[in-house]
Design a protein around this nucleic acid. Sequence first.
DNA 1: TAGATTGTTAATCGATTAACAATC
DNA 2: TAGATTGTTAATCGATTAACAATC
Lengths: 232, 232
Amino acid sequence: MPRLTRVVLDRLIRYYRYLADRVAREQVETITSAQIGQALDVDASLVRKDFGAVGLLGMSHVGYEVCEICRSIRSVVGFDRPYEGVVVGAGQLGSAILASDEFERYGLRITAAFDIDSFKVGRRRGGHVIRHVSELSAVVREHGIRLAVLTVPAEAAQGLVDILVAGPVRAIWNFTPARLNAPPGVLIRNERLSSGLAEIAYHLNRGMSVPGDPEDATSADSPEPVLVTSDG
Amino acid sequence: MPRLTRVVLDRLIRYYRYLADRVAREQVETITSAQIGQALDVDASLVRKDFGAVGLLGMSHVGYEVCEICRSIRSVVGFDRPYEGVVVGAGQLGSAILASDEFERYGLRITAAFDIDSFKVGRRRGGHVIRHVSELSAVVREHGIRLAVLTVPAEAAQGLVDILVAGPVRAIWNFTPARLNAPPGVLIRNERLSSGLAEIAYHLNRGMSVPGDPEDATSADSPEPVLVTSDG
DNA sequence: TAGATTGTTAATCGATTAACAATC
DNA sequence: TAGATTGTTAATCGATTAACAATC
């Protein structure tokens, strides 16, 4: 199977969330590409193409089996193979992430938290005892941790990346505004909030005159598209 | 000036952050499109095209004035015109946002916080007293608030959007996983963390074999690109 | 001046949409 | 069967990259 691009991956998530939510509520066994497309504002043939890309086969005259779609997406993306991650930086945002139980749904289990502030070390956040960052290198090696969530001040970020990638860490989920360098093969996923703010500021300053880039919602009753955008 | 697309806006932010950071550190007066392009892994002619789109003119043989670039981007995006926003939902994530001072740099000033939990109401978060959500409608109207940051449980999100857009709110910064509907002219910006998790899970499951989509960092010393991606 | 750099046009690339034969 | 739906190919669209004359 050829590598999926990020835009495809993004749509797969949207299909998955929409269908998983729906199947939990109503009894839906099958669904057509046109129905999904309308609900999510994606062209029906793009839906079919995406499904084809993950090996899903539909049934003529019927559509696709909802459970099979969900299963297939989970499997292709890898949500069904749990993996462990650590949170580095137990400030407000780090604590919010430690307290969240949303991530397990997507395969991620947070197994340790670190901070440099010795006042915080030893305290609990969302069921995890905070350890001192000096233990970071040993812990990720010992447990073969492959993901680190970075919620530290921007200045500290690169130094921590260097420590992490010297061990088994192969993906960094970066919530700091820092630009980070890592060796080939290490994924750095930036959650850049300033990008959201740019879009918001631009929108508010332009008046609301121009239609945008509808993304994962529609206002079915209005001819003009709602402005809905997302990072991915 | 024609409307800027989201991809252009995204790059503008990257230019801005890179240059603002740099000018704060070193004494740089001018810079060429090639230098920016190399630092940020963007084709030099795309840099020039982006600058053209915001009305920036360079000087042959010299490049662009760094301060002029920054000023121009701030102005086009609207960072130099402050606006007020409210945070709805004073949980962990809401508190993290309330505590942050990063956003003022981009024009956003948080002026109020709301929650439905009467135990929280009256307490302080990052300098703001939390008010009961029943006051939300009156407050946004009174202050002409145009942005709301949503950090509530997914089930509560749509109902709050309806209240907000009935008032002056014209942009929603959505940190919940809910898909939201709003009338035309209202921007809904989704910060969808599951999208980041999808990319991470996919990467970790694929092995690190395939080069990716370098975005705002490069490992200058390696021939292969580092995997660096971002929501925007 | 010579050479570096811009601004812009043309070529390329990739992703989305449209069309339609095959299927049940 | 007739008609709805898929899977796939071709056309379109938009964004990126390459090329290059104009400039200082």
